[in-house]
Design a protein around this nucleic acid. Sequence first.
DNA 1: CTGAAAGCGCTTACAG
DNA 2: CTGAAAGCGCTTACAG
Lengths: 329, 329
Amino acid sequence: MSKMPTVKDVAERAGVSVGTVSRVLAGEAAVKPSLREKVNEAIVALGYRPNVTARALRTRRTDVIGLIVPDITNPFFAQLAASVERAAQDYRHSLMLASSHDDREAEQDHVVAFLDRSVRGIIAIASSDNPDLQLKSPIPIISLDRRFGAFPLVSTNHAQAAALIASHLFELGHRRIAYVAGPPDTEAGRARRKGFVTRMKQLSDEVELEVFFGKFDYESGEKIARDLLSRSPQDRPTAIAAASDQQAIGALRAARDLNVDVPRELSVTGFDDILLANLVVPRLTTVRQPTDTLARRAVELLFSQSSDIGDEMIDGSLIKRVSTGPAPQ
Amino acid sequence: MSKMPTVKDVAERAGVSVGTVSRVLAGEAAVKPSLREKVNEAIVALGYRPNVTARALRTRRTDVIGLIVPDITNPFFAQLAASVERAAQDYRHSLMLASSHDDREAEQDHVVAFLDRSVRGIIAIASSDNPDLQLKSPIPIISLDRRFGAFPLVSTNHAQAAALIASHLFELGHRRIAYVAGPPDTEAGRARRKGFVTRMKQLSDEVELEVFFGKFDYESGEKIARDLLSRSPQDRPTAIAAASDQQAIGALRAARDLNVDVPRELSVTGFDDILLANLVVPRLTTVRQPTDTLARRAVELLFSQSSDIGDEMIDGSLIKRVSTGPAPQ
DNA sequence: CTGAAAGCGCTTACAG
DNA sequence: CTGAAAGCGCTTACAG
């Protein structure tokens, strides 16, 4: 393979200095049009492509964004990652992806690795709260969905969204309800639970509300629902509200296995609106997180020069499907 | 922020030349132990971390691998991506992720972008066949799961795996079978169909086998199954074998909507064994693709110096669950 | 507006 | 085994 052409080759061919080549590359106005044209011709003639590594060494920045997710296999994070990649593209940036596998140490190692590679900014979906995290970073770091360290967070308004579900269930007449919460060591888990419980209490103090804690995954939902549904019919809840679609889908499976009809005998709700929510049987009533908006905002903040970036919350919206119905008598 | 220390700072503090620092960094044996020690002390004292960009500029290689997927939101690709990331980690490499959204042009743009960033190697899951793709690359490119251009492919032995399903269905007594194929413009789609059909013909020429073509997604499976199941019971197949789990899950949903009992009235099989396959109702009989092995092999090949890299196929394995049963009378 | 030159932080022949 | 020096391909003050 013949060597790639450099600014020097372009300069020679165009009969200008490398400085001038660099200036037209940068799109600087201050270049005489005739020279600019010659340079551009030389660029296409040679098939010149800037060496981004050399550029990065000089400018100390690259056109890549680092994204840390707990687990790309989780459909919600996959959706978020897809949205972040699209948003990054809009800024002509590439995406570096790292999975923490819910391991804090791995999370921090990935930050360091990203810093070493001088990424332009880091977006992190944290595995769990870690307010003590002390991390000096020369580049912006934004938390997405779940707060990383003490960095500014872009997320759905979890409390508001969870309250939507509470109202929906209440209106359907449910008065014996189980809430399957997310891990209490995540802000998202706490905010959703609080939003749900608060709204429910507000609506009436007659509601029997039980709260159970699990992880955000299928298994937690299935297990908790299984326990609940093996109670005698008059003792069990008429609705299970879960803190994630995955938990809700687990609950649906448990109901199926135990021959509990959804939604006739039991209503089930999720949170996230992953693709799957609309595919399971019965289709899941849930709350939609605006992943595209969240992702776009996160990368916008990365590029905003502003020094006082605060948290941003975006409202979720109720998606009524068929896993919820009137409370049984 | 105080400036990051460089080799020069380390050299000064250790009382050696930068060349020597670089040599101990490279782990070269040819450094006097006493000096090596001094250098190492200086490194920790200063908290020195090599500038990977400068290193990349000199050596023309980075420690990142580029991965191109059609859509990270597809659970099978997400699993594959997770496996690739893990394998890359084992080689201390980071992962750059790009989605092609089934767009060939985007696919090629991503390759170019990766090349610009001098990644160490590229792993590509192609959106569709493109044997005419002419692409000069100074770095290794490996196709994973679906062939990209004419680059060597690491994949499951699609034909063998599909034959496993054919045998399973035949043994259960099914003689009226519909095969929902993947896109004929993908090697994977063709190989699976061929493997299935060939084995079935081999088993008996009494089997009524209909083949339908779709995409690999939920919608295709649902639509095709819906058409099939709206026929009169004696005209419809007793088994639907799909070329992907997503298609099969779509088929399951159609069966549910049309009140066709699986597996009593209809057997359904998938392909991939995504996490979801074990979560749907009823749990899906499918064939497992060894994603970890596939991914590991692909990155191994990236690092293998060998110049004659050929295709590699890895066998799949039948996972019997409850979406298949004896053919109805 | 443009050129000549320094310098980003490394690695690696080249001498010795 | 080690040091001095060149050079990877850019960008950007500095002069003019």
